[in-house]
């Protein structure tokens, strides 16, 4: 029996909380490493509509991303009709990475759950072409080595060096909830695009983000959210609860994993504030009527 089967056996009750899952992922995740406790005494967490033990989630998340690393963008394109590219462009444009004047220091950007680097490359491109800054560097961090390997390959194809202290882009396997290798107060901008939902302990991830950011640093999160128009929400629910799982079954042979729900914009903004950030404006900006949202918090 596979890990998935084991997950079903351990299921306690069906949950409709902010859970999630795999391939419909748009990015990879950093869940915690397994810590060797027995399943019976562990807390449970959400994986799609299933409840599973926390350590099980990590291995599941890792397992599923291993298998999709290469076809990752294709899957995202199919499921979002390519709109995820527009969201990511908007996300990066709005954050406007890169130094703005000759008196400024170049930025150090950390792309959490950055996997194949699609946000990172956009960041570098924006910093160079819009702000004329070729010194700003991006660290891509992910729990999944296969995704990072794919990212390195793409970086080389784009002509970026990935080795050495001054490399514009570097890739590192890290647990996003702890970021052991990242010193305190060292990051200007920490981004996470379609990754936060794969975290086992979101509060911990947010407080770690707060730790590694400099004073004045920005946390920005692009994630699926709640559609705020009733009629559109009905349509979107139809799509996300029937069409997407069906495609999941066709492409990845797994239906259950494609069903998930997200917290409302307001709830998530509250979590960001609780982690010690000041919200930018009301705290978020809706994309495509709230199908996705960008949350922004600043460490002051």
């Amino acid at each position: 029996m596979s890990m998935r089967g084991a997950g079903r056996v351990l299921r306690l009750r069906p949950s409709r909380a902010w859970a999630t899952v795999y391939p419909r992922s748009f990015s990879t995740a950093g869940a915690r490493f397994q810590d060797g406790k027995s399943a019976a005494e562990e807390r449970t967490t959400h994986f799609g509509f299933q409840n599973i033990t926390e350590s099980m989630k990590e291995s599941k998340v890792r397992e599923v991303f291993d298998s999709v690393a290469k076809n990752y963008d294709t899957m995202n394109d199919v499921m979002s009709f390519g709109i995820h590219r527009l969201w990511k462009d908007q996300f990066v444009q709005q954050l406007n990475p890169g130094k703005k004047s000759i008196f400024s220091e170049p930025m150090t950007i950390l792309d959490l759950a950055g996997g194949t680097g699609d946000i990172a490359f956009r960041m570098l491109n924006h910093a160079r072409t819009v702000n004329g800054d070729s010194e700003t560097r991006v660290k891509v961090v992910d729990i999944n080595e296969e995704m990072l390997k794919e990212g390195v390959k793409r970086a080389h194809a784009l002509g970026y060096r990935t080795e050495g202290e001054d490399a514009p882009i570097s890739f590192m396997v890290q647990n996003g909830e702890t970021l052991e290798a990242i010193p305190d107060n060292s990051i200007d901008l920490l981004t996470i695009a379609f990754g936060i939902r794969n975290f086992t302990d979101k509060e911990k991830a947010l407080s770690t983000a707060h730790r590694v950011l400099k004073k004045g640093g920005v946390f920005a999160c692009l994630e699926f959210s709640k559609v705020n128009n009733f009629i559109l929400d009905q349509i979107y629910r139809r799509y996300s609860f029937s069409v997407i799982p069906m495609m999941g079954q066709l492409i990845a042979g797994d239906r259950d994993s494609y069903q998930y729900l997200f917290p409302s914009q307001k709830d998530f903004a509250g979590m960001i504030r609780d982690a010690g950030f000041q919200l930018a404006g009301k705290g978020w900006q809706d994309l495509t009527f709230g199908v996705a949202a960008v949350h922004t918090g600043v460490k002051l």
């Binding site: 004073k215 640093g217 930018a280």
Partner: peptide, 18 residues
């Protein structure tokens, strides 16, 4: 940006004001 710098923050802190 000048305000942000004068107050001792970073370029990226501009994002505080959407």
């Amino acid at each position: 940006l000048m305000g942000v710098k004068d107050a001792g923050y970073l370029d990226v802190t501009m994002n505080l004001f959407p």
